[in-house]
Design a protein around this nucleic acid. Structure first.
Lengths: 111, 111
DNA sequence: TGCGACTATGTCCTTTTCGACATATTCTAT
DNA sequence: ATAGAATATGTCGAAAAGGACATAGTCGCA
């Protein structure tokens, strides 16, 4: 958002901030969230590439379809453990898993 | 292990295999384990670099010293969530976190 | 338009994981 | 050698997360 716009909004009585601030997340909590999101994204991609249905993926990781749905929905009842298990079972390579986490920094430096 | 040695051992009645086979881990389970190990390693390094004691790290992540000890000991009662929280709180960069996972592949290709 | 495959959401009960505490053990510097 | 800090290990009640099931909602396609 441009700073001129921010100033206008402030003048009009709006408070402007990041989503992180709004949700009251600490820096660390925010990082954890973005890691989760990156991994979930990687799962969708890997699962699609492998042509697996949620049911099929669930079997592979001995879980249930509803769990897989919740994983991809970013449901809070899903742990990182389950997310990574899903990522592995959906056919992601080690490199992909690592990349899902390091990507943001790397692209930022690259441009 | 050299194949000649394997043959000798086999002749002598020994069964030779990987740790994975011995422990009865599936391919996927084994990958999960090695991810955990890589992350734990990264925590030790990051914590040392930051000069944090286990007590200090525990505070940062609002956990307890005993938990941190268990994390670094690879205790099975520790989840990936807690491991990553520790990694973040111990001052690791996004890049380090990603690297902890992609490293094996990358070095394998590099050499 | 209706049918089958796929995905989403809610709930229940069980298992796992957590923080906390108590207590050992190991390390470091004097 | 010994105190004090740091780390390790065990246990417990509470809280989080898991699988399973039931049930809706979507989507493509015949």
């Amino acid at each position: 958002m441009k700073s001129t716009k921010v100033r206008k909004l402030s003048a009009a009585g709006w408070r402007v901030g990041t989503a992180r601030e709004f949700l009251g997340l600490s820096e660390d909590e925010a990082r954890l969230v973005s890691i989760r999101l990156a991994l979930i994204d990687a799962i969708r991609k890997a699962r699609a590439r492998s042509g697996l249905s949620q049911v099929a993926l669930a079997e592979r990781m001995s879980s249930s379809q509803s769990r897989v749905a919740k994983i991809e929905a970013g449901d809070p009842s899903v742990s990182l453990d389950l997310i990574i298990r899903a990522l592995i079972a959906s056919g992601a390579s080690d490199l992909e898993i690592g990349a899902a986490l390091g990507t943001k920094i790397r692209t930022a430096k690259a441009r």
